[in-house]
């Protein structure tokens, strides 16, 4: 059977890995190639790069990062952050990315997703969704799409939005709970399950991983097809190999 995927995510700023990767025996923890190579050796199923470069002068650096990584790491690579035009997508794919994640640009211009999937194929277009719970206590659960790092509400219902993005051709959904992101208390499982059951395409759960059990929960209870995490792997709290063995011991099908 198809394995559930474990995807480490690297934040890249002006060509350097930030948010401190702390492998003990790595020469340059800021070098995306070196970090990606390490994750590949540990058995990562894919790697996601999130370009957080603010200055437009340095935008081009992510292209070189992708080129360098794709020349020696032979697993799927996804790039997100600042993807706004079909030209951005073309450059990333030509550099060696397998998929691009579209986030804010999809909210402001949903037709961009349709255009992108028609031009490049659904298989390489991931729509990234940042959602926050907006229902109060005792109310039926409801989540809304937020932009600008979770600060700006859009009025869009997260489940409806995910369905619409799949209608527009999205090949995969990268779902981040803005309530859980950075908290280390686990995925928003109700949100993950609601979205995963609402769409026909794979869903990657993101936001909140602090323990290996959280990864298992994301798959078993959240029905996610893949789990994405950053800090638990970066700080070498757990290796990807450890995470996979933990999941396998609890009945999750993984690639060992």
């Amino acid at each position: 059977m198809l394995a559930k995927r474990i995807i480490p995510c690297l934040d890249v700023d002006a060509g350097r890995v930030v948010k401190g990767v702390k492998f003990i025996d790595i020469r340059d923890a800021g070098d995306p190639v070196e970090v990606a190579r390490r994750y590949n050796e540990e058995g990562a199923d894919e790697i996601t790069f999130l370009d957080i470069t603010a200055s437009s002068d340095n935008r081009e650096t992510i292209v070189h990062v992708v080129e360098d990584v794709a020349s020696e790491v032979f697993i799927p690579l996804t790039v997100g952050g600042g993807i706004r035009t079909t030209e951005d997508i073309r450059r990333m794919l030509n550099a060696g990315a397998d998929k691009v994640a579209i986030n804010t640009a999809a909210v402001f211009n949903p037709e961009f997703v349709r255009e992108a999937t028609e031009r490049f194929g659904s298989q390489c277009i991931v729509v990234a969704i940042d959602a926050k719970q907006v229902s109060g206590e005792g109310e039926p659960l409801k989540w809304e799409i937020f932009t600008h790092g979770g600060r700006r509400p859009t009025g869009l219902d997260a489940v409806d939005w995910a369905r619409r993005m799949v209608e527009y051709g999205a090949g995969e959904i990268l779902l981040t709970s803005m309530d859980r992101d950075g908290t280390k208390i686990g995925f928003d499982l109700a949100l993950t399950r609601a979205i995963s059951e609402a769409v026909t395409v794979p869903v990657i759960a993101s936001g909140g991983v602090g323990t290996l059990q959280h990864l298992v929960d994301g798959v078993a209870e959240g029905k996610a097809d893949a789990v994405l995490a950053a800090s638990i792997f970066h700080f070498a709290e757990y290796s990807i190999g450890e995470a996979k063995r933990y999941m396998a011991d609890r009945g999750v099908e993984v690639r060992l």
């Binding site: 394995a3 298989q123 869903v203 097809d225």
Partner: peptide
């Protein structure tokens, strides 16, 4: 087929990931 299930979980299309 659109309605494939394994252990009561619907299989996603595309198949995306590592299989044997």
């Amino acid at each position: 087929p659109a309605d494939m299930e394994i252990e009561s979980q619907r299989l996603k299309i595309p198949q995306m990931g590592w299989n044997r």
